[in-house]
């Protein structure tokens, strides 16, 4: 076993002075922050930050463009989901949070569509592999949203309607086809 560290000097070994040093640091923070908190309350010194915390949900951190939020299903011009229920996202999902039920689409050119498309965000590990796997540009995680808390587990299983209604955060859209886009720009399957 290797012990990392330095030998304590006599003063350090007494601890008393070190304790006082620690107390001084915290006290300094206390009074500094206290001063500015009160100043903010009275409307002064608004530009000085006295706390590093963010008042979520009123405030949110601006996230990176690559950040993965709540899933979104991209739509066709008629508003129906682009998803063809190929279940590749369900296959690739490492935590099995996606559950699709497929059925025959009345239009033989589309052929297959999801009757139900559920994402269990309580299980989701936000890896984004579903985005990668999707061959038809249907699932994206660019809504920039954090899932809100729910009162039941079922509240946190997002269904097809919810996911279709999500829109990408302005400027964050990863798909080349915006929701309801006409001619698809990415068209791996001719769909």
């Amino acid at each position: 076993m290797k012990i990392v560290g330095h030998k304590l000097s006599f003063l350090e070994n007494i601890y008393l002075f070190e304790i006082v040093r620690g107390l001084v640091i915290t006290t300094r923070h206390f009074f500094y922050n206290m001063f500015f908190h009160i100043a903010h309350l009275l409307g002064y010194q608004q530009d000085v930050e006295a706390a590093v915390t963010i008042q979520y949900p009123e405030q949110t951190i601006p996230v990176s463009k690559r950040w993965r939020g709540v899933h979104r299903i991209n739509t066709r011009p008629d508003g129906s989901p682009r998803c063809v229920a190929c279940m590749l996202c369900e296959t690739v999902c490492p935590v099995q949070c996606i559950h699709i039920v497929a059925e025959e689409h009345p239009d033989p050119a589309i052929e297959k569509y999801p009757v139900s498309f559920e994402v269990d965000v309580t299980r989701c590990c936000w890896c984004g592999m579903c985005e990668e796997a999707c061959p038809v540009d249907a699932i994206y995680m660019d809504s920039g949203k954090i899932p809100k808390a729910g009162y039941s587990r079922q509240d946190l299983v997002y269904d097809k309607e919810t996911l279709t209604k999500e829109v990408p955060l302005p400027g964050y859209q990863r798909s080349l086809n915006p929701p309801g886009a006409g001619a698809p720009k990415v068209n791996p399957m001719g769909l």
């Binding site: 915290t26 923070h29 206390f30 922050n33 206290m34 908190h37 006295a50 706390a51 590093v52 915390t53 008042q55």
Partner: peptide, 8 residues
């Protein structure tokens, strides 16, 4: 504790 730790 919050004020000491730069929190609210």
């Amino acid at each position: 504790s919050a004020v000491m730790q730069d929190r609210i």
